[in-house]
Design a protein around this nucleic acid. Structure first.
Length: 922
RNA sequence: GGGCGGAUAGCUCAGUUGGAAGAGCGCUGCCCUUACAAGGCAGAGGUCACAGGUUCGAUCCCUGUUCCGCCUACCA
C-alpha cells in the first residue's frame, strides 16, 4: 500500500530515489532515431566534468527537463543529450592546486603524468554531477553521455581544426594577446573580465633629445611600461606640439632616443596632456599605433609578467634602474619606477583616475598584454553567416532583447585566439620538423624550487608547422623524421562550439545527426552567449551546414535573496542538493520554473522553496482526499448531464491546460507554473473539493457516482499536466490512483478541448463564489462566534440570477458553515423569521451581484415598516456597488469603506425577539 | 564612452495590441472543521520612481530627470 493512503505529509526522499532509478532502468528517456514522432532535441550545456551541481545548473536543467518531458508526453521523438566539458583552464587549475597541496608543481610532474593525473581526477569526481542531475530527475538519454575529450568528439575537433586551417581560416601569428601571468596562458578577449578600479594617471616629463630644456609631458596609468616605449604620439592638429613631430625624445631612465609621431587615432586632444607614450609590446592601442608607424616592439616583461633583465638590457635601460626593478612583477615595479622618476624631477603629477582593469576569468589575476606567437581563427568569414541566421529568423533568440546584444558583438568580432599554453585539452594538431625549424625552437631549462629540472619549449614566430590529422612521417622539405608537436592546446570553447553535432557523431553521417540536427531548443544562461552560443552557431553553419538549433532560450542568472551573485567566498550560496534534501526536488524545480521570468535575474530565497514544498504537500493531501472518497460506484455520465460543479472544474481544468500549453510554447515557464499553482490550490482544492464533499460523503447523494468519476479524471489529468514541472510527486500519485499505463512519464500530455468548456457553469460558479464570499465576510465582520448558526438572506435584482442562487442554496449553506438557512430574506414572511429566531439563529442579509441597491433598500425598508417601526434606520448607500447598514456601530465604523453588501439585521433581530416573546406570552 | 534592462503592496515579482491595480511570501484577526495547522476563512497594505506630453482615459505610448543593475569598450 502506498504511503499516499497513510501519511499526512509528503516525504519526497524515498519517492524521488525510487522513481529516478526506475525511469532510467525502464529506458523511458532513451531516444531512438526510428521513433515515429516529430523530433525534438536538446543538447545540454555541458557542465564542467569535475564540478558539482549549483543552483544555476538546477535552473538551467529544470527548464530543459520541463521542455523535454512536455514534448515527450506530446508524442514527439525526444532526445535530451547529456554530457560534460573538460573545462581546460578551470580543471587544470583545480588539479594544480591539489598538486601544490602535495608539494608538487605541474612542471615537476611533467606533461604526460600531469594529464594522467587530471584523467584520474575526472574518473573519481566526474560522476558527481551526473548523479546529481539524475537526482534532479533530468530525463536525459544517459546512454548517450558525451565528454568533450571523448575519442569521437576529439576527432571532430581535429577535423574542424584541420579543415579550417586548410581553408585558410586558422593561422599562427605573433600578436599582442591577453596573458594570464598566473595560469601562464593566452586568453581570448572574452575570457578577460573588466573591473573598474581606482588607479593613478601619472604625468611624466619626457625631455627632447639634444634639447633638455624642451620637453613633452605624457600621461600614463602604467609608468613601468615606459622602459619599453618606442615613440611618443601627439595629435597632428595640436598647435601645442605639432611642430615637434619628427623630432626625438630622449626616453628617461633609458637614454634611448625615440621619435615623436603624429597620430590622430591614438591621441585624444581633450584627454590627459595630449601626448601619449607608445609601448607597442604591452598595450593594445600602442600595438596598433606601432603598426601604423612601423615602430619596433620592445617586450620588457617575461611570461610571468616580471620585468625581464635580458629584455631590459636589450632595451638599453639605465643600469641602476635594471638593478632596482629586474625580476619584479608589475605591481612592485610601478612604485619603483615612480620613485625613480620623482628623484629625477620628471614626475609632474599623479592624479586619481578610474580605469578598467582586465582580469583572468578563471583566477582573477590581472592580465597582461603579452606579445607571443599564438593560433587564431579568422573569424569574420564565420561570423557573417552567423549574423544572417539570426537576422533572418532561422535562429530565434528568446527573449528578443538579446538579439541586438548578439548582433552587436558578432559584427564587431575580432579574431579568436584559440591556443592555450596549458596541458589539459585538445592538443593542437600541428607538427614542426625539428631540423627545418631549429632556429625557431626555443628550449628554456631551469630548476625549480623543489630542484626539478624544467624544460620550457617555445616555438618562435617563423616556425613552419605541418597541420594534419596525424603526425607526419617524413618532412617533405628536408626528409627529416624528428617532429615536435605544438605544445599548445585549444581553447576549451573550441570543442564545446562543436557540441550540437560532435555529440551526434559528426564527422560521420549518422542517423542521429539526420534525425536530431538541427536541435530544437538551446537553453542557456546569458553569461555564455558569446563564449558558447555564438561559436556553436558559427561552427554549425560552417560544418553541417545548418543552424545548430532553432530556438535559443536565454534565462537569467540566479542570485541570492539580496540580489548578490552567489559565490563560495561570500557564503551566500544556496546549495540545490541541500534544498532538495530539505524541501524536495519537485519544490525546487517548481520554484525555479515559477521564477524564470524573462529578462530579469532571479533572486532566490529559501522561503520561496518552502512555499512550494507546501504546495507539493497540498497536492499530496488532495490526492489522499480523492482516494479516501473513491470507494463506491463511479459512472462515466456524459459531461452535460453532470452537476454544474463537475462541469465547472472540468471547464477550469481545460482552460488551465490551454494556458499552460500556450505558455510553454512561449517559454513562459513562470506563467505556466503560476497558472498551475493557482488552479490546483485555489480552484481545485479550495473550491472543488469543498463543493463536492456533500456528494461524496452522503452515500445516497444522486451526484455521487458521477462526481467520483469527475474527481478522479480531473486529478489524473492534473497530474499529467503538472508532471513536467514536478515529476516525482505526480508519478507517485498517478501510480496510486486509477490509471492506464506503466508510467506517467510516457502518458499523453493533456490537450485542450472546446467541448469541455462550460461558460454557463463558470458563470454560475462565479455567482456562488460571490455569495459565499459575502456570507463569510459578513460572519467575520460581524463577529459571530464560531459555533453560532446564522441565517442569511440573499437578494438579487436579476430574477434569473436570483433563481440560480436559490438553486445554489445547499452549496451556499455548505460553504458558509453554520449558515444553514439561506434564502431570499426580503421575501421571508414574518412567521418564518420568527421561526428562525426561535431556533436561535441570527439573521443577516446578503446582497450580491448587480443588484439595484436602492430598490433592495426600499424593499427592505417597506418590509420593516410593516413589521416594526423601530427597525434600524438604513442608510449608507455609497455608490452603485456598496452599501452599509448601521449596526453594530463599532464594526461598521471600523469597516465602513470595506463592508460590501453586508447588512446586519441586529435591530430586526431584537425586534423579532420581542415579537416572539409576545407571541409566547412570556 | 556606447548599448540594454529595471524602478508596481513590507519583501520577491506578474501585469503584450492603453479601459475600474494582481499573485506568492510576510503581516493582522478568528478557527486544531474527519484531505492538508506545511492547513482553512477573513482582512490590512499601493499618488504603479519623478516631471512633462499624446489621449475621453496612461502602470502601459512619447520626451526628459534621478536611482539601480547588466553587457560592452583601447580614453593613454
Amino acid at each position: 500500500m502506498s504511503s499516499l493512503r497513510l501519511e499526512k505529509t509528503y516525504d519526497p526522499k524515498a519517492v524521488e530515489a525510487r522513481w529516478s532509478r526506475t525511469w532510467i532502468e525502464r529506458g523511458y528517456f532513451r531516444a531512438s532515431t526510428t521513433h515515429p514522432g516529430q523530433p525534438y532535441s536538446i543538447v545540454i550545456p555541458p557542465p564542467n566534468v569535475t564540478g558539482s551541481l549549483h543552483v544555476g545548473h538546477a535552473l538551467n536543467h529544470s527548464l530543459q527537463d520541463i521542455l523535454i518531458r512536455w514534448r515527450r508526453m506530446q508524442g514527439r521523438n525526444t532526445l535530451w543529450l547529456p554530457g560534460t566539458d573538460h573545462a581546460g583552464i578551470a580543471t587544470q587549475n583545480v588539479v594544480e592546486k591539489q598538486l601544490l597541496n602535495e608539494g608538487i608543481s605541474r612542471e615537476a610532474l611533467g606533461r604526460e603524468r600531469f594529464v594522467e593525473r587530471v584523467w584520474q581526477w575526472k574518473a573519481t569526481s566526474g560522476n558527481t554531477i551526473i548523479e546529481q542531475q539524475k537526482q534532479l530527475g533530468e530525463s536525459c538519454d544517459w546512454d548517450r553521455l558525451r565528454f568533450t575529450m571523448d575519442e569521437g568528439l576529439s576527432r571532430a575537433v581535429l577535423e574542424v581544426f584541420v579543415r579550417l586551417y586548410e581553408d585558410g581560416l586558422i593561422y599562427r601569428g605573433e600578436r599582442l594577446i591577453n596573458w594570464c601571468p598566473r595560469c601562464l596562458t593566452a586568453l581570448s578577449d572574452i575570457e578577460v573580465e573588466h573591473e573598474e578600479v581606482k588607479g593613478k594617471l601619472f604625468h611624466i616629463r619626457y625631455p627632447l633629445a639634444g634639447d633638455p630644456n624642451v620637453s613633452l609631458v605624457v600621461a600614463t596609468t602604467r609608468p613601468e611600461t615606459m622602459l619599453g616605449d618606442t615613440a611618443v604620439a601627439v595629435h597632428p592638429d595640436d598647435p601645442r606640439y605639432r611642430h615637434l613631430i619628427g623630432r626625438n625624445i630622449r626616453l628617461p631612465l633609458t637614454g634611448r632616443d625615440i621619435p615623436i609621431v603624429g597620430d590622430a587615432i591614438l591621441v585624444d586632444l581633450e584627454f590627459g596632456t595630449g601626448a601619449v607614450k607608445i609601448t607597442p609590446a604591452h598595450d593594445f592601442n600602442d600595438y596598433e599605433a606601432g603598426e601604423r608607424h612601423q615602430l619596433p616592439r620592445l617586450p620588457i616583461f617575461d611570461h610571468q609578467a616580471l620585468l625581464d633583465p635580458a629584455s631590459l638590457t636589450a632595451a638599453s635601460v639605465d643600469k641602476d634602474i635594471i638593478a632596482d626593478v629586474a625580476g619584479l612583477p608589475v605591481a612592485k615595479a610601478r612604485p619603483k619606477i615612480e620613485h625613480a622618476l620623482k628623484e629625477r624631477g620628471l614626475l609632474v603629477k599623479a592624479e586619481d583616475h578610474k580605469m578598467a582593469l582586465g582580469k583572468c576569468y578563471r583566477c582573477k589575476t590581472v592580465v597582461e598584454p603579452y606579445l607571443s606567437p599564438q593560433w587564431f581563427v579568422d573569424i569574420k568569414p564565420l561570423a557573417e553567416p552567423a549574423i544572417r541566421a539570426v537576422e533572418d529568423g532561422r535562429i530565434r533568440i528568446i527573449p528578443e532583447g538579446w538579439i541586438n546584444n548578439y548582433l552587436g558583438w558578432m559584427r564587431d568580432i575580432k579574431d579568436w585566439c584559440i591556443s592555450r599554453q596549458i596541458w589539459w585539452g585538445h592538443q593542437i594538431p600541428a607538427w614542426y620538423c625539428e631540423r627545418c625549424n631549429e632556429p625557431f625552437i626555443h628550449r628554456q631549462t631551469s630548476t625549480n624550487a623543489s630542484g626539478a629540472v624544467i624544460t620550457r619549449v617555445t616555438l618562435l614566430q617563423g616556425a613552419k608547422p605541418v597541420v594534419a590529422r596525424r603526425a607526419p612521417a617524413v618532412c617533405p622539405q628536408c626528409g627529416g623524421q624528428q617532429w615536435l608537436r605544438d605544445p599548445d592546446v585549444l581553447d576549451t570553447w573550441f570543442s564545446s562550439g562543436l557540441w550540437p553535432f560532435s555529440t551526434l557523431g559528426w564527422p560521420e553521417h549518422t542517423p542521429e545527426l539526420k534525425t536530431y540536427y538541427p536541435t530544437s531548443t538551446l537553453v542557456t544562461g546569458l553569461d555564455i552567449l558569446f563564449f558558447w552560443v555564438a561559436r556553436m552557431i558559427m561552427f554549425g553553419l560552417r560544418f553541417m551546414p545548418d543552424v545548430p538549433f532553432r530556438d535559443v532560450y536565454i534565462h537569467a542568472l540566479v542570485r541570492d535573496a539580496e540580489g548578490q551573485k552567489m559565490s563560495k567566498s561570500k557564503g551566500n550560496v544556496i546549495d540545490p542538493l541541500h534544498v532538495m534534501d530539505q524541501f524536495g526536488t519537485d519544490a525546487l524545480r517548481f520554484t525555479l520554473a515559477s521564477m524564470a521570468s524573462p529578462g530579469r535575474d532571479l533572486k532566490l530565497a529559501e522561503e520561496r522553496i518552502e512555499g512550494y514544498r507546501n504546495f507539493a504537500n497540498k497536492i499530496w493531501n488532495a490526492a489522499r482526499f480523492s482516494l479516501m472518497y473513491l470507494e463506491g460506484p463511479r459512472t462515466s455520465t456524459p459531461l452535460p448531464e453532470r452537476s454544474f460543479v463537475d462541469r465547472w472544474i472540468v471547464s477550469r481544468l481545460n482552460s488551465t491546460v490551454r494556458t499552460v500549453t500556450a505558455e510553454l510554447e512561449a517559454y513562459r515557464f513562470d506563467r505556466a507554473a503560476n497558472v498551475l499553482y493557482h488552479f490546483i490550490w485555489h480552484e481545485y482544492c479550495d473550491w472543488y473539493l469543498e463543493l463536492i464533499k456533500p456528494a461524496l460523503q452522503n452515500p445516497a447523494h444522486p451526484d455521487g457516482p458521477a462526481t467520483r468519476q469527475t474527481l478522479i479524471e480531473s486529478l489524473e489529468t492534473t497530474m499529467r499536466l503538472l508532471h513536467p514541472f514536478m515529476p516525482f510527486i505526480t508519478e507517485e500519485i498517478w501510480q496510486t490512483i486509477p490509471h492506464d499505463g506503466d508510467s506517467i512519464v510516457i502518458q499523453r500530455y493533456p490537450v485542450a478541448d472546446r467541448a469541455l468548456d462550460a461558460p454557463d457553469a463558470e458563470q454560475r460558479f462565479a455567482l456562488l463564489e460571490q455569495a459565499v464570499s459575502l456570507v463569510r465576510t459578513g460572519r467575520v465582520l460581524l463577529n459571530y462566534p464560531p459555533g453560532q448558526q446564522i441565517a442569511f438572506g440573499v437578494a438579487h435584482d436579476d430574477p434569473e440570477k436570483l433563481r440560480q442562487l436559490q438553486q445554489l442554496d445547499s452549496h451556499l449553506a455548505h460553504l458558509s458553515r453554520g449558515a444553514p438557512h439561506i434564502g431570499m430574506q426580503h421575501a421571508w414572511p414574518t412567521a418564518q423569521r420568527l421561526r428562525l429566531v426561535a431556533e436561535g439563529l441570527t439573521i443577516g442579509l446578503i446582497v450580491t451581484g448587480e443588484v439595484d441597491l436602492k430598490k433592495a433598500l426600499d424593499r427592505l425598508a417597506k418590509q420593516r415598516e410593516e413589521q416594526d417601526k423601530d427597525i434600524a434606520r438604513l442608510s449608507g448607500k455609497l455608490d452603485n456597488k456598496e452599501f452599509v447598514a448601521k449596526a453594530p456601530a463599532e464594526v461598521l465604523a471600523e469597516h465602513k469603506d470595506r463592508l460590501r453588501g453586508v447588512q446586519h439585521d441586529q435591530a430586526m433581530l431584537a425586534s423579532s425577539e420581542q415579537q416572539l416573546r409576545a407571541l409566547l406570552g412570556a
